[in-house]
Design a binder for these strands. Sequence first.
RNA 1: GGACGGGUGGGUGAGUGGCUAAAACCAGCAGACUGUAAAUCUGCCGCUCCUUGCGGGCUACGGAGGUUCGAAUCCUCCCCCGUCCA
Length: 371
Amino acid sequence: MGFQFEVLTTDPTGARLGRLVTPHGTIETPAFMPVGTAATVKGQTQRDLEDLHVQVLLANTYHLYLRPGHELIRSMGGLHQFMSWPHPILTDSGGFQVFSLSELRKVTDDGVRFRSHLDGSEHFLSPEKALEIEIALGADVIMVLDECIEAPSSEPRTLEAASRTLGWARRSRDYFEIHGDPARQMLFGIVQGGTHPGLRRENADALGALNFPGYAIGGLAVGEPHEVTCAMTSLVTARLPRDRPRYLMGVGKPEQLIDYARLGIDMMDCVLPTRGARHGCLFTSEGRLLIKSARYANDPRPVDERCRCTVCRRYSRAYLRHLYSAGELLAAILSTHHNLYFYLDIMREIREAIRFGKLESFRSVLQARLK
RNA sequence: GGACGGGUGGGUGAGUGGCUAAAACCAGCAGACUGUAAAUCUGCCGCUCCUUGCGGGCUACGGAGGUUCGAAUCCUCCCCCGUCCA
């Protein structure tokens, strides 16, 4: 039982091959975590996810608190049992929702007052309340509540949000020490600081001093250029404790995953493969393919000729395009399956490359193909 | 044979004198999506010309005429379709 994180190999680039042991299984890192906000990865059964060798899923505190309610999930035996996913789960705190539901919220040092997107009812989320919910849900990795702001934001505004997030992190840690069980759940702090290098450094140092078992980097990939995302990530990973896992929240595009890995990121998540799939955006070894386009109407080839997923082995582009045109559910199901396979396959290759110290050459090959 | 109702752009269907190349929806086409208020959203969608502009020309509301400065909208005749009565 309990948790253990170890870095097995470090590539010359700074990328780490690691392993995060949790009560529900071991996660090989760098890992990509498919997003299953409402305790489901849209369009995939748990069996599908196991077939894809998904190591860890993301679920969302905000959404599950509103529906069906954390107490209900607790009474059903916790999130793993409720959703029949006996493997690792990470719950995001709802901090990002605080950000994206901007018109419906009011943030103070106490917490966030917001309106439900479901029925307009008013709710209050504090760092403590978020943790209470996350403890009830019972995910393996849980996140502190943070305040995410848009990039770019002014330095004073960014400092305000970062300081608040830091204060919340401290309160979260204290709350978890009393009410949490470190053998059952691992609490991650979240570094903020926007696109301001000084603030990022300060925030990383201060958060690092709080001695969390793991660290996330938030507030990035929200509109700023990729180079900026990388620069900020790099600043932060250089300062975080080397023996703790680092989770870069909400990234990224397929060709970007490797960039983050080489900056020392161990965990990532993104809605792109799943949402994109539902919208007809398929990721392939030769770049993005918008399957709804008329040019695939009678294309007998698989989505990606290099891909070995069950969808590419069996179905043609013409068929998938037809499913989209007809508004068939299977379109989303098959596309999601392929996209997740594609993402997870890239991560597999990244781990392999780190193991053999060939990340840099793999990166040039990969990025040349995807662009 | 008679009485009503109706014929609008690829489809459904608003519009009853100018603000109408004509609402809205669908279909079609192109695109966006980075800790999921997203099976969503955005743009284009008669033809054509150019110095691409809240630009010009042409064609268009069953057909042909007419009234009017101006007609999808009003009048006349004709052709179709639906319902009912003989």
